[in-house]
Design a protein around this nucleic acid. Structure first.
Length: 419
RNA sequence: GGGGGAAUGUCCCGAGUGGCAAAGGGGGCGGACUGUAAAUCCGCUGGCGUACGCCUUCGUAGGUUCGAGUCCUACUUCCCCCA
């Protein structure tokens, strides 16, 4: 929408050249504000799961770019709003989470941000805030009188998040209908507490963000801006975030650095350059050189991408270990101790384990039945030998160098280790 | 307030004469081909069991029937028409 190429501020220039911008509410004014000095901007994250996934990485990187250009990022954890549930992009009401679940999720999510942002008390240091701080203390009447007056139902009904739900003939509760009010109040609250002037988010958040911008301009007569990032999908049109092995979680205990590295390594050719611009700090010159590679050579670029992206999240050491494991497994056909492993009591293995059960337990299949089907289709391998009979039992005689190598397909590999 | 329609495999869309674990897509997973890519082709896609099999599924709750996604009743939500 905004393709204004004449940005003068470092921040918007950086955002534009690396492909982060979809829409901006008042581009020229925002540009001027960024030029005038450090601004404060925020993105909200809901605490519906115990880890963020690759889809959120887009937003996290946006905050990183903000800080890199000398501005102050706020990470807003939706401790309060999660209790309501964002109806955007959902055709059904989400199950309501308990306080304890929400707090647990927040604690777990927190750790990831520290890898991408520098937190502290300095003028451009990042801060993390929980909107439960203010949302929980509102009385119903007070909330309605202070903020309800500034929203018309007519307007609210016209927003996509509401419209799609109605179009799909799905119920939308009053609770969810209030979500956009709460998000607007968040922005206002951050403006008052931290002088925050910009809210960013995915393009699906446009409606919610615009509401907040208007609320601030109306109530406090202060400038406020919104910026959205494009919807992230792969070049072949698929929604990004899922891959071999399910959702790409950012927390290491839910998705190993090895798997994370693999996720980036498996990027489609056409996406390599774009992803490097978005998800790594590689220089634009370097990226231009790498994405120009053709044919099989582009695999080198994919490795650079995987290393850079994994380094950001899990550290350089983990990235190198993942690469080494991958090179050993794929290019040399060797085992590496860095491959994901699954531990099994030694006695159990010596007594004999049914392959289907082991494959399911080790996470290669969702159930024994699935493991059987996988085997029948020729996708299950034991020590690199395709095994069509998932009912056979494995025992100590299957150990090679102390482990059994199980693989589902070419990319999901687990070393079964007796302990 | 009255009348008519709709809800299906817990990822999505969507067929379904009373015998159905339920057509067909999409998506996902696996195989072949390749470069750990894309495109294409093939297979699989509720759980448990080695297996004849057992269990759980068609908005919710009851009922009729040897047997119900399919018929009846009530309820929930949505759409359309009349007031």
């Amino acid at each position: 929408m905004t393709s204004d190429p004449e940005f003068k501020s470092d921040f918007l220039r950086l955002m534009q050249t690396r492909g982060y911008i979809h829409q901006i509410t008042h581009p020229a004014d925002l540009d001027a504000a960024c030029l005038a000095g450090p601004i404060v901007a925020y993105i909200g994250f809901d605490a519906t799961a115990s880890s963020l996934h690759v889809g959120h990485l887009f937003s996290i990187m946006t905050l990183r770019r903000l800080q890199q250009s000398g501005h102050k990022p706020i990470v807003l954890m939706g401790g309060g709003t999660t209790k309501v549930g964002d109806p955007t992009d959902k055709d059904q009401q989400r199950p309501l989470l308990t306080d304890a679940q929400i707090q647990g999720n927040i604690d777990s999510i927190k750790t990831v941000f520290q890898r991408f942002l520098t937190f502290g008390d300095g003028p451009t240091d990042a801060v993390m805030v929980n909107n439960a701080e203010w949302l929980e203390s509102f009385g119903y009447l007070q909330f309605l009188r202070d903020y309800g007056v500034h929203f018309t139902i007519n307007r609210m009904l016209s927003f996509d998040s509401v419209k799609t739900r109605l179009d799909r003939e799905q119920p939308m509760t009053f609770l969810e209908f209030n979500y956009m009010l709460m998000q607007s109040v968040d922005f206002l609250e951050l403006e008052r507490r931290y002088g925050c002037v910009l809210q960013m988010g995915g393009s699906d958040q446009w409606g919610n963000i615009v509401n907040g911008v208007e609320l601030i301009r109306r109530v406090d007569q202060k400038p406020a801006f919104g910026l959205t990032t494009p919807l992230l999908s792969t070049a072949s049109g698929q929604k990004m975030g899922k891959s071999v092995g399910g959702a790409v979680w950012l927390n290491a205990d839910m998705r190993s650095p090895y798997d994370y590295w693999q996720f980036w390594r498996n990027t489609e050719d056409a996406d390599v350059g774009r992803f490097m611009r978005l998800f790594t700090d590689l220089s634009l010159d370097e990226i231009a050189r790498l994405e120009a590679l053709e044919g099989a050579q582009i695999n080198e670029a994919k490795k650079v991408l995987a290393n850079a992206a994994t380094s950001l999240l899990h550290g350089e050491e983990a990235a190198q270990a993942a690469e080494a494991a991958a090179v050993a497994a794929f290019e040399q056909g060797q085992l590496s101790t860095d491959l994901p492993s699954f531990e099994i009591p030694r006695g159990e293995l010596e007594a004999g384990v049914v392959l289907a059960a082991l494959a399911a337990d080790a996470g290669l299949a969702a159930s024994r039945g699935e493991a059987r089907r996988l085997a029948q289709g020729g996708g299950l391998r034991v020590n690199d030998q395709a095994e069509t009979d998932a009912n056979r039992t494995l025992d100590a005689s299957d150990l090679i160098d102390g482990v059994v190598k199980l693989a589902a397909g070419k990319k999901k590999i687990v070393l079964v280790r007796p302990v």
